[in-house]
């Protein structure tokens, strides 16, 4: 295995584009090293991104939007009070990833690019309308987060392409988001279902919403029908029931040892309701 310490995204893209065998990028390494250890993925070229300037930075621009570096670990997101105030749902999704030790390393970008349908930070990013900037041999392009994973372990990145930044839009007023996952254990477990909701209010009425589900399909889903079920409502009981029905309908899970397909479909609706209530409360100014 060749270990490369890239000093720019262009260099990292060049190394990846010219590499012949199995290539991996190294952010926190909490997926890569586990896969190496298991013999699942033995990279010929491993390209460490953490020496690239800016990869450890979180910046809020003048318009209120955020740029998150690709090497910022979960623990640092949680320690950023401004980010937690703007996007609590995004942060709480990432903070559910692993233990304190894993939080010291694991990144949003790694969680996204590993391509797990159960990745805990991805529904929050999708609901937030986050995008990624991709650098490749042909220059750079921007993609919505929901278009990055294309199947378990697969992404829309072409050979030589890598993510150079995550962008979160400006939060704006009267808005809130939330992520909930269901796991048998409260810590150190993989989501049976995950759900994130982001919404904006005008008075008591929801005027914008995005709903995302994890672990119920080959990729994390953006469920427009679930958002439509609550837009224009005050999140009354009828709207919550319609939301749950739309979320359950969109869920196309498999059955495995963590839960049957029927169970996951039911839980998708339950979590959507609960996450929507939390997001609504936050939009109203609740701090929880």
């Amino acid at each position: 295995m060749n270990y490369h310490l890239a000093t720019s995204f262009e260099e990292a893209a060049r190394i990846a584009a010219n590499a012949g065998g199995t290539t991996r990028f190294l952010a926190g390494g909490t997926d890569v090293l586990v896969q190496m250890r298991a013999g699942m993925v033995l990279p010929d070229d491993l390209i460490d991104l953490k020496a690239i300037p800016g990869t450890d930075a979180m910046t809020q621009l003048a318009d209120g939007s955020w740029q998150i570096g690709v090497a910022v670990p979960g623990a640092r997101l949680g320690a950023n009070a401004d980010l937690c105030r703007d996007w609590p749902g995004v942060v709480e999704g990432m903070e559910l990833v692993g233990s304190t030790q894993v939080q010291g390393r694991a990144t949003l970008t790694g969680n996204l690019c590993n391509g797990s349908p159960a990745a805990d930070s991805v529904p929050g990013l999708v609901a937030a309308g986050a995008t990624v900037v991709i650098t490749g041999p042909e220059g750079s392009r921007e993609l919505p987060v929901e278009e990055v994973p294309t199947g378990p372990g697969k992404t829309a990145l072409n050979k030589g392409e890598l993510i150079s930044e995550i962008r979160l839009p400006a939060r704006g007023d009267n808005a809130g988001d939330a992520y909930l996952r269901f796991t048998p254990r409260t810590e150190m477990d993989i989501a049976v279902v995950g759900c994130a909701v982001s919404l904006r209010l005008d008075g008591d009425k929801i005027v914008e919403a995005r709903v995302s589900l994890g672990a119920v399909a080959p990729t994390v889903l953006l469920v427009a029908e679930a958002a439509d079920a609550i837009i224009g409502t005050t999140l009354d009981d009828a709207a919550l029931d319609a939301l749950a029905a739309a979320a359950s309908k969109a869920a196309k899970p498999i059955s495995d040892k963590r839960g049957s397909a029927e169970y996951r479909i039911e839980i998708a609706g339950v979590l959507a309701k609960r996450a929507a209530k939390i997001a609504y409360g936050r939009a109203k100014g609740d701090n929880k």
Partner: peptide, 12 residues
């Protein structure tokens, strides 16, 4: 920062 040393490469 607290980490698992089994998830960090020596070169890192």
């Amino acid at each position: 920062t607290l980490v698992c040393s089994c998830l960090v490469l020596g070169v890192e």
